[in-house]
Design a binder for these strands. Structure first.
Length: 561
DNA sequence: CTGGGGATGGGGCCC
DNA sequence: CGGGCCCCATCCCCA
């Protein structure tokens, strides 16, 4: 007994899920575009994907072998078994597809392309011929003898680059080359409004953000062989899928990115430059790093636990639910959408309240749980595209910038939160922490701090800093994360947050190759190698490499136990 | 099993 | 806008 359409229906469902980001657990980065997908599907389609996604949730494909538009077609093919017929399927397109399919070891697709090219009478796949300019088409040569990623990675960089250049020349039409560049430029502009405002300078936005995708998940097959610490994403599959799904959810709601099936999420630019080989850090790998590699799965589980307990960043936790609620098209209610950890027994039926409350109380002490507007909270059908809502007046705005501008038109009295019960600055734990910190550092002199906050009386040296501080009292957070939607008061914090989404760690340790999202972390880390312990406990003489550990230690001294 | 220490990640915020 | 520091939270190791 066999259901005739079972496989077809299954694929259909999976493709729909992909379009909505449901249960997607891997991000594929192609140039500046992000694609979400399901690991199982990719693994079932290609040995190459299978090996890549085994250790990584963020895959960065070699941009010389595949470009975003081609990869979109490929992804569609993987999920549907069909190559959409359209005018765009020129021979050039099939060549590009063939190259990419070979690179990704999608043998069926490669065979289809070869067949199509052969049918068009232009295929030189099986019998290399001389092209009009007398050159042998290296693309076709490659296609007939697919280069496995391992083979490719075995090439010297120079050879690889050369080969890529050859492939590019042969595979991509002038138009495609143009599109690639234009794509880069436009996506730099499609970065968050704030970033795009700064212009792209002809480079892709990632670099402006300090986001180096190639460093995160190097192209080629390195991930298939040995997983360097840097290639292990910090993001659990769970959080990755949350991010993607959540991103999709409000993309669909806000039409800001207008995702369609397989359409790349315009992250806001990527590197136009050729992907760089990963730094060879394996031989420097410390035992600790190896240990960390080992425990990575556990830390993923930990994030699941965090989600359960609502200790994930509030925006993430919240969108986890919102994504389920607000997906358009009906039929995708909460019951169908589940981004829970697989071992989550408790479920998220009441998870929205949990994540909203506990999630925020964790990181923000609960202070902003009622103060700040999240886009989803402001999302009402009546608001249309004006999803950035000002709480005091209820007006909606299409962008954070406009909301920001609007907020500034309010008077201070309107803007500041009159919550006497919560405005006991500093809070108790802050006082305690300050007591501890005061044992290490001295209190700032207030003499030169002429500019004081009218809300909490904190004083600052210059008006700009005061203004920056005052924004922390605002009702809104003007800088949303493009991936999870979490809002931030400072753009820099949001940018930093984005790095954690993407597992981007631009700051590498020269000693062991370990990578960090922040320079300061690297500085901190370097003391591990130098053995420097500049922080000394005045009570017991204990020395520490990090100030925070000294503070933690001091807490041990001062605690009643 | 427990507590302390080492190390790391993420957010807030000031400079 | 980046750097730096503070906070909290967490993990792992080890005594």
């Amino acid at each position: 007994m066999e259901l005739p359409n079972h496989a077809k229906q299954l694929l259909l469902q999976l493709n729909q899920q992909r379009a909505k980001g449901y249960l997607c657990d891997v991000i594929i980065v192609v140039e500046n575009a992000l694609f979400r997908a399901h690991k199982n599907i990719l693994a079932a389609s290609s040995i190459y994907f299978k090996s890549l996604i085994l250790h990584d949730n963020l895959i960065n494909l070699d941009t010389d072998m595949v470009n975003p538009s081609v990869f979109r077609q490929i992804l569609d093919f993987i999920y549907t078994g069909k190559l959409l017929s359209s005018d765009q399927f020129s021979d050039h397109n099939f060549n590009a597809l063939l190259t990419a399919a070979s690179y990704l070891q999608l043998h069926d697709l490669a065979a289809l392309c070869r067949k199509k090219l052969k049918r068009n009478g232009r295929s030189l796949l099986n019998k290399p011929t001389t092209s009009t300019n007398g050159r042998t088409s290296r693309n076709q040569r490659l296609s007939s003898t697919p280069v496995t990623p391992n083979q490719m990675s075995g090439l010297k960089d120079s050879d690889k680059t050369k080969r890529h250049e050859e492939l590019l020349k042969d595979d991509l039409s002038e138009d495609e080359m143009f599109v690639r560049n234009a794509h880069c430029a436009t996506s730099a502009n499609s970065l968050s409004p704030s970033t795009s405002k700064n212009g792209s300078n002809g480079s892709c936005g990632m670099q402006e953000l300090g986001l180096d995708l190639s460093k995160k998940s190097p192209s080629g097959s390195t991930a298939t062989e040995e997983v360097s610490p840097s290639s292990i994403p910090q993001e659990s599959p769970q959080s990755a899928s949350e991010s993607i799904a959540n991103s999709a959810s409000f993309d669909e709601n806000t039409n800001t990115q207008n995702l369609t099936s397989g359409e790349p999420m315009e992250l806001g630019g990527g590197e136009c430059e050729e992907s760089q080989p990963p730094p060879d850090v394996d031989q420097h790998k410390s035992s600790r790093q190896v240990a960390r590699q080992r425990r990575q799965p556990k830390s993923e589980g930990r994030k699941c636990e965090d989600a359960e307990r609502g200790t994930l960043p509030n925006g993430v936790a919240k969108r986890l639910n919102v994504a389920g609620e607000r997906l358009p098209g009906g039929g995708h209610g909460n019951s169908e959408v589940s981004f829970q950890c697989k071992d989550d027994e408790e479920g998220l039926e009441n998870g929205q309240e949990q994540s909203e409350e506990s999630g925020q109380s964790e990181s923000d002490g609960g202070r902003n749980s009622t103060n700040y507007v999240y886009r989803q909270e402001g999302f009402e059908p009546a608001l249309g595209d004006n999803l950035y809502v000002c709480i005091p007046c209820g007006k909606g705005f299409p962008s954070s910038e406009e909301l920001n501008a609007h907020v500034e038109t309010h008077t201070e009295e309107e803007l500041y939160i009159k919550e006497e019960e919560d405005d006991s600055y500093p809070k108790e734990d802050e006082v305690e922490a300050e007591d501890l910190s005061s044992q290490i550092t001295h209190v700032h002199s207030t003499e030169s701090r002429r500019f004081s906050c009218s809300v909490c009386n904190k004083s600052y040296k210059d008006p700009a800093t005061l203004r920056q501080h005052e924004k922390t009292h605002w009702l809104t957070r003007p800088f949303p994360c493009n991936i999870c939607g979490k809002m931030f008061t400072q753009r820099g914090t949001m940018t930093r947050h984005m790095r954690s989404h993407l597992g981007l760690k631009p700051f590498a340790c020269d000693e062991c190759g370990m990578r960090f999202t922040r320079q300061y972390r690297l500085t901190e880390h370097m003391r591990v190698h130098s053995g420097e312990k500049p922080y000394e406990c005045q009570l017991c003489g204990g020395k520490f490499t990090q100030q925070r550990n000294l503070i933690s230690h001091l807490r041990m001294h001062t605690s009643p136990s």
